[in-house]
């Protein structure tokens, strides 16, 4: 006998996969809910923008400050922008963005759809001639998939700016020199794969949030649980996807 937690995990994974499959089946057939999609993009972007920007800025700043002593030890202080920019753009900015969105967007979608479910609003939509899966779920998954990469690009630039300030706290690196070094270091093979993986992060966050909300149990307690587990699962999934992405990029020797 398999332990129960294991079978629950497997059946839940299967359900989520089916849910994602339903998204691909339904999202690309008319009728398209374009207005609602734009509204969701705006919400997702607008809600997480300040948080993403502040966090990315601070990460850029502190990573630079923390990296300096080691480089100084090897007499490689001049490499600071080089090293910091690679780790920020490849790893830190995309993952931080995804985690913040998992917390903010994942829980938001989970709670919103969950409460719509338990107060029969989803049924009411269906009765009003609307496919609630298209109107509520497909638009949100699509919006998350397309908006989170934009936020990640923004996080890249803000964190690099934070890196510039960090480099100038102890040493002096001119604005031109810093950015020249950064752009010399960063190749397309650093930037593009790291942006591509954020599409997957966005898709995972949107899908998990919608899945948890759409399948909420009766009662307000169910709504809280949906929001909570949406955050936990999607954060975890971000790390798993990141691990996979790193392996794939490594295998294809894109680095």
């Amino acid at each position: 006998m398999l332990p129960r937690i294991f079978t629950t995990f497997l059946s839940e994974t299967g359900d989520i996969a089916r849910f994602a499959g339903r998204f691909f089946k339904e999202a690309f057939k008319p009728r398209y809910e374009f207005a609602e999609f734009l509204r969701q993009c705006f919400f997702i972007g607008y809600k997480s923008l300040p948080l993403v920007a502040i966090t990315a800025f601070i990460m850029g700043l502190v990573i630079t400050i923390q990296s300096r002593p080691t480089l100084v030890e090897f007499g490689a202080e001049a490499w600071l922008p080089k090293m910091v920019s690679v780790s920020l753009v490849r790893e830190i900015a995309p993952v931080i963005t995804a985690l913040i969105c998992a917390g903010k967007i994942g829980s938001g979608i989970g709670a919103e759809l969950g409460s719509m479910k338990v107060t029969e609003q989803i049924d009411a939509m269906e009765v009003s001639g609307t496919n609630p899966f298209k109107y509520l779920v497909a638009t949100r998954i699509m919006a998350a998939t397309l908006t989170i990469p934009i936020l990640a690009v923004l996080a890249d630039s803000v964190s690099l700016y934070g890196g510039y300030l960090g480099a100038n706290i102890r040493g002096v690196v001119s604005w031109d020199l810093y950015w020249n070094q950064v752009f010399d270091t960063l190749a397309f093979s650093d930037v593009i794969p790291s942006i591509i993986k954020t599409f997957f992060f966005g898709f995972a966050i949107g899908t998990i949030g919608c899945y948890k909300g759409y399948n909420s149990n009766k009662g307000t307690e169910g709504v809280g649980r949906s929001a909570n587990s949406a955050v936990v699962i999607s954060s975890l999934l971000v790390f798993v996807l990141d691990l996979l992405a790193v392996q794939i990029i490594d295998l294809l020797s894109l680095t």
């Binding site: 719509m116 609003q121 009411a124 001639g129």
Partner: peptide, 26 residues
Amino acid sequence: RAKVGFLFQSNALYDSMSVRENLEFP
């Protein structure tokens, strides 16, 4: 369904919308 009205036990008003938008929706 366009010819059958349904009043839900829990009202099922859309709480992200105003009263006007609620009525316009169907």
